[in-house]
Amino acid sequence: MSGVIVLNTDNTALHTVTVPHAIRMLIRQVAIIEEALEDRQIGPYPVPLVLRLVRYVKTAFLYARTPAWSKRGVLRRDHHTCAYCGERGHTIDHLVPQSRGGRNTWLNTVCACEPCNRRKADRTPAQAGMPLRALPRIPGWREVSTRT
């Protein structure tokens, strides 16, 4: 079993938790069992498959803004693939170099491998003759989240 599904009071899925975490939620009375394995028990509780929260949890604030820029986020967004050659990348390259005023933003940074990053140096991709394989974009929360 991969986990216990936790539903909001409006029956929208929020996330999954482990069985021990689900039992703690039941003990604290923050959730009730929606679906369980009837033939298996943990103490007085049947082993839960789906829980529903007792109180509504607002989640819109989590997704209202775009994720903050981070090197780790850029690497995840680009799947650790160099934007220039397609090899495995471990560094961040600025399309408009920092020496020319380029900033750490989602649309100005891409994942790059060491050789491509050195070859491009402090030039733009057009000046270096290195076209991008894909344009940078602002990722969604799920792409850069550490809980995926």
Rank of each mutant, 00 (worst) to 15 (best):
K71E: 03
T105S: 14
I33W: 05
V96R: 12
R55V: 01
C85K: 08
V17L: 04
A83G: 14
V54Q: 09
D10Q: 04
R133L: 14
A68N: 10
L75K: 09
H94R: 08
R72N: 13
T146Q: 02
R147W: 11
H90Q: 09
G101S: 06
H80Q: 03
R76Y: 07
H90R: 12
N108W: 05
W141D: 07
I23G: 07
G102S: 14
Y84Q: 11
H21F: 09
I23F: 08
L53P: 08
V96C: 07
L51C: 10
T91L: 08
A83S: 11
Q98G: 14
M1H: 08
A64I: 10
R55S: 10
K71G: 03
T81R: 12
R137A: 00
L75D: 13
T91A: 04
L62G: 06
A36T: 09
D10T: 03
R147P: 00
P139C: 08
S70F: 02
T59S: 04
L49D: 00
S99D: 14
T91V: 14
Q98A: 15
G43A: 12
D93H: 06
V50N: 03
R100S: 10
L95P: 11
D122T: 06
R52T: 01
N117L: 01
S2D: 06
A128V: 02
K71R: 13
P139N: 10
T18G: 06
V4K: 14
G101K: 11
G129W: 03
E38A: 09
E87F: 10
P131T: 05
A112G: 11
R40E: 15
V144A: 07
R52S: 01
S145D: 02
H90D: 13
A126E: 14
R133T: 09
A134F: 11
S2H: 09
Q41F: 13
Y84T: 03
G140D: 12
A112L: 15
I138W: 04
A36N: 14
D39I: 01
E143M: 02
Y45N: 09
